[in-house]
Amino acid sequence: MESQAKNFEITEAYLAGSGRPALTDERRLLLEKLFALPGRDILNKILNLDDPREMVQGVPCEDFFLLIKKVGEEDSVALLELASVDQWQYLLDLEIWEKDRLDIPHASRWMSLLKQADCRKLVKWLFSEGQYLAHYHFFRTLEVVVINDKDEVFDIPEGFFSLDNVFYIRVLDPQYRESMENIVRVMADEDLTRYQALLLGLAGVLPAEVEEEMYRLR
């Protein structure tokens, strides 16, 4: 309990200096009770609340991260679905970096988990605040072939697929092929123009510069 109390003191101090509302006594007590439970019981307790989304999104990002760790990453999809994009961003900032380098396998794993949680929300975030991650991650994990001449017949290599008969995509890591294909399909469905602009922009990505900018913005 001492470590939990210290954690809440840090959280309260952070909130006091951030302009964000501090935890209410009721929510602080609930968090203390949650952290005292086993991971599976934490998840069940949250899901059985009258408004689990309001509760989860009202948790400071630091404590949300600890909840994910306590529940277990593979069992956390339901919590991720309830979370805000700010909580997602905080989680990714802690999880996908190895010192000052972006860890692509970790990023792919968390992209897969977020896709399972809410692929549409993930796509909207990748089109906006998460655009640097989208460009860098896609640059590292996708092979893209652009075919502009519709009058020519091209022999598309095995493993490529296209959603618009212009951009042909192959996912490089077989472990995340299904996950990444689902993400790009939802991207095209959400906004075909932005999807095409993202893929077209991959040719101009300077990975070191994008990675440096992402690290600066953490």
Results as ranks from 00 to 15, higher is better:
Ser3Glu: 15
Ala5Tyr: 10
Ala5Thr: 02
Lys6Gly: 14
Phe8Asp: 05
Thr11Phe: 00
Tyr14Met: 13
Tyr14Asp: 07
Ser18Tyr: 13
Ser18His: 06
Gly19Tyr: 13
Pro21Ala: 04
Leu23Asp: 02
Thr24Trp: 01
Glu26Gly: 03
Arg28Cys: 09
Arg28Thr: 04
Leu29Asp: 12
Leu31Ile: 09
Glu32Val: 09
Leu34Gly: 07
Leu34Ala: 11
Ala36Glu: 13
Ala36Lys: 10
Ala36Ser: 14
Arg40Glu: 15
Asn48Ile: 02
Asn48Leu: 14
Leu49Ser: 01
Arg53Trp: 03
Glu54Ala: 14
Gln57Tyr: 01
Cys61Ile: 01
Cys61Leu: 08
Glu62Ala: 15
Asp63Arg: 09
Phe64Ile: 04
Phe65His: 07
Leu66Cys: 04
Leu66Trp: 05
Lys69Gly: 02
Lys69Trp: 02
Gly72Val: 03
Gly72Lys: 05
Glu73Met: 05
Asp75Val: 01
Asp75Lys: 12
Val77Leu: 01
Leu80His: 06
Leu82Tyr: 05
Ala83Trp: 05
Ala83Ile: 05
Ser84His: 04
Leu91Tyr: 12
Leu92Tyr: 06
Leu94Ser: 10
Leu94Lys: 15
Trp97Gly: 05
Lys99Ile: 12
Asp100Met: 09
Met111Gly: 11
Leu114Cys: 02
Lys115Gln: 14
Gln116Ala: 13
Cys119Lys: 14
Cys119Glu: 11
Cys119His: 00
Leu122Asp: 11
Leu122Gly: 04
Val123Tyr: 05
Val123Asn: 08
Glu129His: 11
His135Arg: 13
His137Ile: 13
Phe138Pro: 03
Phe138Gln: 03
Phe138Arg: 03
Phe139Pro: 01
Thr141Gln: 10
Leu142Val: 06
Leu142His: 03
Val144His: 07
Val146Ala: 14
Val146Arg: 14
Asn148Ser: 09
Lys150Ser: 13
Asp151Glu: 15
Phe154Gln: 01
Phe154Val: 15
Asp155Gln: 11
Ile156Val: 15
Gly159Phe: 02
Gly159His: 05
Gly159Val: 11
Phe160Leu: 07
Leu163Trp: 10
Leu163Phe: 08
Asp164Ile: 05
Asn165Thr: 06
Phe167Gly: 00
Phe167His: 15
Leu172Val: 06
Pro174Arg: 09
Gln175Leu: 13
Tyr176Pro: 06
Arg177Leu: 01
Met180Ser: 10
Ile183His: 04
Val186Pro: 03
Asp189Tyr: 11
Glu190Pro: 00
Asp191Tyr: 01
Leu192Glu: 14
Tyr195Val: 00
Ala197Asn: 13
Leu198Ser: 08
Leu199Cys: 03
Gly201Arg: 12
Gly204Pro: 01
Pro207Met: 09
Pro207Lys: 04
Glu209His: 05
Glu209Ile: 15
Val210Tyr: 02
Glu211Gln: 15
Glu212Leu: 08
Met214Cys: 00
Met214Pro: 04
